[in-house]
Design a protein around this nucleic acid. Structure first.
Lengths: 199, 199
DNA sequence: GATTATCCGGAGTTTCTACTCCGATTGTCA
DNA sequence: TGACAATCGGAGTAGAAACTCCGGATAATC
């Protein structure tokens, strides 16, 4: 089940009416906030309430709760990709790479249940990610390669390992969200592990 | 809500009847298998079916689904603690520590949804863990201290950081469960980060 | 400003699942 | 072996949440 999916944004179908576009954005925003605050198991009705729209409106834009989850998730990935792109202009490639890692993990500590969403949504989202996460993979891949070329990051790992570590570090950060010092030291361990060994 | 909880095992109440004891064990075993295979959102009825008992029996032993989750979770933690204790006898303290880390993460890659259970069960379980996970904390703490004293693990981290990394690494391993090589390299990064810096 | 296709709202439907209750069954003990 | 209490089994209950449907409202077009 991977339909053409021309619905969101200026894809291929017909342009959405102004109010429809506005509501769509509101719903996405509210959904991200609500899911972050109370986990992805909150009812769609709660999302609708927070967005200030009727429940029917939510289901018209996102025919399934899973579709809504996926949309929130994709939006988040795209934002991360943009952050990575922004860091491509930095002087020090190593610093840029580690800064990105730190940023992402920092978000995870605040925006709770981001990683949980991954785990919960499960297989389907994971499969989708292969396509939709393309932007992030591209941007992060570039960041990684630059950092490796500069000798700041070890050469025996690739994008899959970095992505896995990103998810893992985010999960770890969530568990120690309360203590910033612990969080920092935990992240430090991962970052040190990523550095190129000094010869 | 933290009742005396004398129900399980030879606690303080009255000893359970033989069949009750047997069913209790069956339910726990089935629950762990089912949750691992299909996530913690499977119905209690499915657990009962797999255990070969009626649904009423499940709810008599575990008055709440959350109680069942917690029991499975606690059993798992206790088993991990036992593994850690077993490694205390090893010659090389550093090797013992890293072996434990590797074992736990290996389990996570196989026994899916272990980390997800943590995230999903949320606050309540996390609070409970503070008590029930005591055994694991003690055992892992000892393992860590020995490894640090032997100069195999960096000194600027403590038990909280190690626990967070354990959870994080497990989560990362689940995401790359398909590719053993990637999983190994990812874990390698974390382990390298844990090692004491060579001077 | 009138017309029309589009979109909104939310009560109602369906489905699912945690949990209860009590007659039937089974282990235990004298 | 008989009597009793503990336990089992699963149909039934209550509640929640995903999703539908259509009359009313609203934006686009001329």
């Amino acid at each position: 089940m991977t339909p053409p999916k021309r619905a969101p944004g200026p894809g291929g179908g017909r342009p959405l009416r102004a109010d429809a576009l506005r509501n769509r954005a509101r719903i996405l925003e509210a959904a991200e906030a609500v899911f972050a605050a109370h986990g992805t198991s909150v009812s769609t009705e709660e999302v609708a309430r927070q967005a200030g729209v009727g429940i029917g409106t939510v289901f018209r834009h996102f025919p399934t709760k899973e579709a809504l989850l996926e949309a929130v998730f994709v939006a988040r990935l795209d934002r991360l990709a943009a952050e990575a792109d922004a860091l491509m202009g930095a002087e020090d490639p190593g610093e840029a790479f580690f800064a990105f890692f730190t940023q992402v993990v920092g978000h995870a500590a605040t925006k709770n249940a981001f990683t949980a969403a991954l785990a919960e949504a499960g297989v389907d989202v994971r499969a989708t990610t292969a396509e939709t996460g393309g932007e992030l993979k591209r941007a992060l891949g570039a960041l990684l390669r630059r950092a490796q070329d500069a000798g700041a990051v070890r050469h025996d790992i690739g994008l899959p390992e970095v992505l896995a570590l990103l998810v893992g570090a985010s999960g770890a950060a969530e568990r120690v969200a309360g203590d910033a010092a612990v969080r920092e030291r935990t992240l430090g361990v991962v970052l040190d592990g990523l550095r190129a060994p000094r010869e």
